[in-house]
Computed example of a mutant assay.
Amino acid sequence: MTVLIALCGLPSKAQWIVTDPTNLVQSIVNTANEVIQTSSTASNMLNNFKEVQKVYTQGKEYYDKLKAVNNLVKDAKKVQNTILLVGEISDIYVTNFQKMLADPHFRIEELTAIAFGYTKLLQESADMLLELKDVVNVNGLSMTDSERMDIVAKVYDRLKKHRDMVAYYTRKNISVAYLRAKKVGDSDRIMALYGNADERYW
């Protein structure tokens, strides 16, 4: 799969990526929803979550290749960075929820609630990406290049805040595990699972 980008120098002529990033995110959302609906035990949820990881791994190849594209003009770079934010949001979810599934301090009901929260946040990310897609692709709307890139900048800013919200949601959930582990003298194991503050990129 070559890097599938045709973001031209002129924003009005920019085309959406051949591998549609909105489909990648939506696939993760759909699979995550299935996990919530079909998991009744922690081990069952862990097995089902492997399907989410499989979808994410397929998408990660796309995000990694997109990250490697450096010779883009400023406007196309902003579109690229906006798409990469959604990849980062997906990564925070998949990486950390996998660790939560291995955490004995969460009950299955709590894991289901956490998964539901992540799914909602991912869906909102997909919706913003869809909004970006409509702007980048010429869709019959009368819009100047300046107006189009102004909307791209606004979507980027919203997604950046959304990424921060997903990171905050992750920290809050993990802090519950830390507190519970501390009460029963299990802090070292939980620290090893999630890492210390310096090791956490989110």
Rank of each mutant, 00 (worst) to 15 (best):
E110H: 03
V73A: 12
F49Y: 14
K120F: 08
I114P: 03
N70I: 10
K78P: 05
V79W: 00
L66K: 11
D134W: 15
Y194K: 09
D150L: 14
N81H: 08
N30P: 05
L101K: 02
V135D: 01
D198P: 01
T41Q: 03
N23K: 15
M45D: 02
T38P: 05
E147N: 13
S187F: 02
L66F: 13
D164K: 13
Q123A: 02
I89F: 13
I92L: 03
F116A: 14
A102H: 07
S12R: 14
G185E: 01
L129T: 04
Q53I: 03
K74H: 07
L121W: 00
N70G: 15
S125L: 02
V94C: 04
L122R: 00
L84W: 08
K65S: 11
Y62T: 04
D157C: 01
N139S: 11
V29F: 07
V18D: 10
Q123G: 10
A42Q: 13
V55Y: 07
R163P: 07
T31R: 06
E88V: 13
S187I: 05
G195W: 06
K99M: 08
E109N: 11
H162W: 13
V35N: 01
S43K: 08
N173M: 05
D64H: 10
Y56E: 00
G140D: 04
K65A: 15
L46I: 03
T38H: 11
E88G: 10
N139G: 14
I5P: 05
A115I: 00
A115E: 07
D198R: 06
V69H: 03
N137H: 02
D150P: 03
K54V: 14
E124I: 09
T82K: 01
A115G: 07
Y62G: 09
Y62H: 14
T22M: 08
Y62R: 09
F97W: 05
K65R: 14
N139L: 10
T57D: 15
A68P: 08
K60W: 06
K99R: 08
F106T: 05
M1V: 15
S90D: 09
L121A: 07
V73I: 13
V18E: 10
T170K: 04
N48Q: 11
Y93K: 04
T19G: 12
C8D: 08
N71H: 14
A113R: 08
V25E: 00
Y194L: 02
D150S: 15
N71A: 15
L179E: 08
E131V: 11
T57P: 03
I17M: 07
M100S: 01
E51H: 08
E51S: 12
Q123F: 00
I28S: 06
V3T: 15
R171H: 09
N33F: 06
Q53E: 15
G117Y: 01
Y169Q: 11
V135G: 03
Y194S: 01
F49H: 02
M45N: 04
K172S: 12
A76I: 06
Y168P: 03
I5Y: 05
N48H: 09
Y201C: 00
V55P: 00
K77G: 13
Q123Y: 01
F116K: 15
H105P: 01
M45Y: 01
V184C: 05
T41M: 00
